[in-house]
């Protein structure tokens, strides 16, 4: 009986937290289909204003261009980050040496450097080489992070070294061993690293705001932030834009969540 009650308490807690987690998302989705007045009078049922809101949003903002910029940034960052950090994490473990351990320790210190402390010189650096307003300037600082290198290095510990030895016997080159044997085996780690990078890159706000200073180049988070900064906010239109800005990352997470969880578990052992 007591055990049953405790079980019920657990379910009650999970239910309350789940409702708290999902309600703002439901509110966002439902409000996107309602007029601004309906949102403010707390209408919690889907309305018929979706197309009206969309028409108003597309008339006021270049959503297509912002979506395209955000996709270019998120996909570009993810691909480059996976290539650069996976091979580094692999090298730290497979070609393990004293010097490399020292370097890893130094690189981990970079995790402690807040972005705020590098932002102004980074801006000056990109300004000097004429890359203000370029999407590359948004991508470059996000490619190599100590967290991803660490994730790959830790996960490589469970990668059997006999596979590397056997492949060398077969006459495979070192790069080929990495590309053809390591990469397919470590899918879960790549999924976890990919999800983290895509989400971070898509959602990044401060750095794009700093480096994209012309109004015609903006990302989705910048677009919705600008939309809410006007004197009169149309809440239905705003929530639709917020929905557009949130769907891609939610879909990526939904599709890859199992691999994501496995990848994190593999790295924390």
């Amino acid at each position: 009986m007591i055990r049953k009650l405790r079980g019920a308490g657990g379910y009650a807690f999970l239910t309350i937290w789940t409702l708290f987690s999902l309600f703002p998302l439901y509110f966002m989705a439902v409000s996107a289909t309602n007029t601004s007045q309906a949102v403010l009078s707390s209408r919690l049922l889907p309305g018929l204003e979706l197309f009206n809101n969309a028409a108003k949003l597309f008339a006021a903002q270049n959503v297509g261009a912002a979506m395209l910029s955000s996709f270019a940034i998120a996909v570009g960052t993810t691909i480059l980050a996976l290539i650069v950090t996976s091979i580094a994490g692999y090298a730290f473990e497979v070609y393990h040496s004293r010097g490399k351990d020292v370097l890893m320790g130094v690189l981990l210190l970079a995790m402690m450097i807040p972005f705020a402390a590098t932002m102004i010189p980074l801006f000056q650096m990109f300004a000097k080489i004429g890359m203000v307003n370029s999407l590359f300037a948004v991508i470059i600082p996000a490619i190599s992070t100590p967290l991803l290198i660490l994730l790959f290095r830790q996960s490589t510990r469970s990668f059997p070294s006999e596979l590397v030895e056997a492949a060398r016997m077969d006459g495979l080159g070192e790069l080929a061993i990495f590309a053809r044997i390591y990469v397919p085996t470590m899918r879960a780690t790549f999924a976890a690293a990919g999800v983290i990078t895509f989400l971070t890159a898509w959602n990044n706000f401060l750095w794009p705001r700093v480096i994209l200073i012309k109004n015609d180049v903006q990302t989705m988070p910048m677009l919705i932030s600008n939309l809410s900064a006007g004197y009169v906010t149309d809440y239905g239109v705003l929530m639709l834009a917020v929905l557009f800005a949130s769907l891609p990352t939610m879909i990526v997470f939904f599709v890859l969540q199992r691999q994501f969880a496995n990848g994190i578990t593999g790295a924390i052992k």
Binding site: L14, W17, T18, S21, L22, P24, L25, F27, M28, S31, V39, L199, W202, N203, F205, M220, P221, I224, S225, S228, Y235, L238, M239, V242, A245, S246, T249, M250, V252, F253, F254, Q257
Partner: peptide
Amino acid sequence: TAIFLPAAVSLVSYSLVFRT
């Protein structure tokens, strides 16, 4: 999934939902 889902939403997005 339900409990992790908020972490997939951008900080700007949820800030504006809470503001509303």
